[in-house]
Design a protein around this nucleic acid. Structure first.
Lengths: 193, 193
DNA sequence: GATAAAAATTAAAGTAGTTTAATAAATCAC
DNA sequence: GTGATTTATTAAACTACTTTAATTTTTATC
């Protein structure tokens, strides 16, 4: 099990001694996902929080007209899951699947509860992770309200310069909230400038 | 100082003994805001997290064209603040002001840090608060991507039935991401059904 | 209670983004 | 490697929403 990245991720926020580190790692499970393989579907109970060691996943919904809308992408060094479903152990609202062959480390709810109990500073760790995610989401809401599709697209590629290359335009458009046709038009227009 | 509501709010998530309760309350400061009074402006450092005892506040931005966009409303029993600015003690991105005469309870960053240290279960409490806010934001992002303005308006009034009466249509439209003119047209159309 | 200021309504013209459909290009599966 | 499927491009017609501007209604202020 490749735990380098997750331990590095954690050490950016809290310091663990060897016992604590070992205990934490004993609670993790490794899982590989093939491209297009699902980690979660609406109605499932989200049983784990998931740290991405390698690959790329997306969290999305499908609306009444069959269109996909991407709530977030996750790549290496990010956590993904349906938080509401995980916390309340109630049915999930989101699809999560792999856009590339991926590898994740999973911690189950019972194990996370054990972890909080035995190593309370993990409360702090997951609060910090959540804070960052919260702030990023708030910025995204504000952007969706304030900016045109063109502006949002330019923001997206400057903010995540490596990510666009790993995604199809269809995925990018489902994240930006526009059609693939319109994204194609935008890109053409921008390339002509 | 009216601490009933905040203690009730806390007791929904964690249990405090008398000493802990007293210590917590000793860290709070009460503040009254007149209608239109600012709690925060972009560039300020957000020095406190704020619990609303009474009234209604909004967190918003003004874009390059001078339009306001409301990221969230806050009413009784909610927490408001610019989390990023508060946590990093760096300049805020948002305006926060009162839409009604309001009363809030404030906890400063140094006091919150003291609180975490002396009563660690508050780490859990603020994690839970944050989780709920995170989930609500995620739903909003998804709604903004998936639904038309009409659908979002109907969702808003069914989800917050009491809130609309306290807000002008201008505020509601700045939250939904449409113009006041278009909201007026929507309302007319819906009333004719 | 009168006056000023802000908010809401209505209509008409304009635009950002969608839809449909046809074609080309890229990727997948065997 | 080849055929099948998915993705991207382009154009033209369409629609949800904006803009502007004029009028009415509501709210705030002294």
């Amino acid at each position: 099990m490749d735990t380098d990245l997750i331990l590095q991720n954690i050490s950016r926020h809290i310091q663990l001694d060897t016992t604590e580190t070992d205990f934490f790692i004993s609670l993790l499970q490794s899982k590989k996902l093939k491209r297009k393989e699902f980690l979660l579907k609406p109605g499932d109970i989200c049983k784990t929080e998931n740290f991405i060691v390698k690959g790329c996943l997306r969290t999305y919904t499908i609306d009444d007209n069959g269109f996909e809308h991407i709530v977030m992408f996750g790549i290496e060094d990010w956590w993904v899951g349906d938080l509401f479903s995980f916390l309340t152990q109630s049915p999930a609202s989101y699809f999560i699947d792999a856009l590339e062959g991926s590898e994740i480390l999973q911690i189950s709810k019972p194990n996370l509860d054990k972890l909080y109990e035995r190593v309370p500073k993990f409360e702090r760790f997951f609060r910090l992770i959540l804070q960052n995610a919260f702030i990023a989401q708030q910025q995204r809401i504000n952007q969706n309200l304030s900016f045109t599709a063109e502006h949002r697209y330019l923001d997206f590629i400057t903010k995540h310069p490596n990510l666009e290359q790993r995604l199809s335009q269809k995925q990018v458009s489902a994240y930006l909230g526009i059609t693939p046709v319109f994204l194609s038009m935008l890109r053409k227009k921008l390339s002509q400038k």
